[in-house]
Design a protein around this nucleic acid. Sequence first.
DNA 1: TCTAGGCGTCGAAGCGCTTCGACGACGGTC
DNA 2: GACCGTCGTCGAAGCGCTTCGACGCCTAGA
Lengths: 337, 337
Amino acid sequence: MAATINDVARVAGVSISTVSYALSGKRPIGEKTRQRIESAILELQYQPNAGARALAGRRTYILAVTEPLRPDTYTPAHMAFVLAAATAARAYDYDVLLLTQDEATGGLHRVTSSRLVDGVIVLDVLAEDERAELVRSLDVPAALVGIPADTDGLVCVDLDFEAAARLAVDRLADGGHRVVGLLGHPPSVYARGSNFPLRFREAFVARAAERDLEVRLGAPERTIAGVREAVAEILGPDRDLTGLVMHCEDTIQMRALDVLCEAGLRVPQDVSVISAASTFDTSTFTPPLDVIPLIPAESCSRAVELTIAQITGTVDPRVELIPPTYVDRGSTAPRRP
Amino acid sequence: MAATINDVARVAGVSISTVSYALSGKRPIGEKTRQRIESAILELQYQPNAGARALAGRRTYILAVTEPLRPDTYTPAHMAFVLAAATAARAYDYDVLLLTQDEATGGLHRVTSSRLVDGVIVLDVLAEDERAELVRSLDVPAALVGIPADTDGLVCVDLDFEAAARLAVDRLADGGHRVVGLLGHPPSVYARGSNFPLRFREAFVARAAERDLEVRLGAPERTIAGVREAVAEILGPDRDLTGLVMHCEDTIQMRALDVLCEAGLRVPQDVSVISAASTFDTSTFTPPLDVIPLIPAESCSRAVELTIAQITGTVDPRVELIPPTYVDRGSTAPRRP
DNA sequence: TCTAGGCGTCGAAGCGCTTCGACGACGGTC
DNA sequence: GACCGTCGTCGAAGCGCTTCGACGCCTAGA
């Protein structure tokens, strides 16, 4: 059997409560006593029993992470968020319970009302997401990574996709480009009401209008054929497009570069290319791409932080947008006259 | 506050233990009593407190899943296993705690000795894997998905990669092919001692020798250039290779098909191609590929099953190999004379 | 008719921890 | 020198659940 706090107390020659206070630091402990307790813990390899701790302390030190990997979600990107959340949680001594697909709502209900978890991190939020509703009605400490249509009463964190889109457009506009394209996600992603692709696209179009640019939008299927078609369309019959922003999965981006290459267009001499809101490493692409990175660790650690803050106190509902940054890798150039 | 078993007992007009037995089914309960209890539960929206249950019942109904997404692991495939494990666990009313990277061993120790989890699923096992050691010494209910070098005392489940390799070789040999290639993983994967790629490759070479075939091995980098180079090398200066087995990630496989295509080689007329031990869908490739699938749900649900069997009783250490199957999609043909 | 023995229920004893109140021993204050 | 506050420690009361033993009751077998 594993050692209990009782064993520790006996070996150290103190009472149970003293051990508990030594562990939690909630009351001062004498130096000698503390040392005896510490060596008893080491000797016995004591680890507090999680169940007992949860029962008595009303804290499980577990966070639920819900990520409903939907039929056409792109796994690597989404998993990056799950991992980032797990890592961030561990930094606060929290563990992470993974809630998937079918369990996204039912499971949320179950784990919160059975007090299995202290809080919830909601990933991959749709504009209309039942989990947002649920979290609101459950009134459980939670943070959403992503922005639902109705953020009332919720704590949300996300990259500022609108600002990212503007940043990309401005970069091209400042370089003198007049015709710019956005190579986006597959059509099904937009159809689903997935949140950030829409936000990005709208802001892109709006800023391009402000800057007086001509805009071409593409939503390619993932296949090489799909990408070829979308890129051809964006380039236009006269190939007058000189600025391309890609806000899509890495496979599509890589294929798009292949397509540009086979069309004899050089980056950045003929076309300036920017990879936007990407979770992957664009420095290994051929050529390496300028990128406005979407860093899972950033939003997830903030989400974890805010959730734990709710557990230990009170946090006002809010939407926190993380400002985008621009990484220059030489894939953009001023438009040639 | 959430309702407790006490409230249920009061509302139903029975004792606490009766409610508990009604819930667990461990003792017979009268029909009328059961109904009163059930409606009390519904009325109060009662959910047993997880902590109390864990403390009293010595079961948390949580399984740890460790997946140390290493620098160069290929996320989608690995996540498929995590998800499969989570889904399988839920089928047995177990939840899943995600242990990642840095926490793979330390975390395992922590969650088992604090009794946070009832058992452990170990994913992505290396030939020499400290987690295998740990599980052995911790003596905790566990199942490994993958086969470490030393399986002594462990419960392991995996696809029979050796048989899969033989199946692929035999298919080509039976079709009259004399020169066959294996397009494998990037070199770093083999270098790391990752388990199944090595097992597959060795069995492939051995079977090819038995069938008197000439073998060419490739371990391409993921880039299009890397794939191009590896494929060219495998094809040989005379392009006399007619059978190709691919045991690698989907991007590499797709790129290899692109490369064959641009080299003017048709599948299956010029080259027969088999995708081996693949977790992804090869039916959407151009052309669709024959595949010996590696089905995460299969091995994971068996692993979960075996772990839970250990929790509730005893299971003899064992290595269970799942026999491979062959799915014909028309990407192989007899060798043309 | 008497007695096993199964059924249905209850009370009580924990499970291992946190936390509140209490209490003696000090040191500082007026 | 009496008083107060702080420090360091202890005992005990739970937290909400499972499970063991006990105890009527009813049926079946002898």
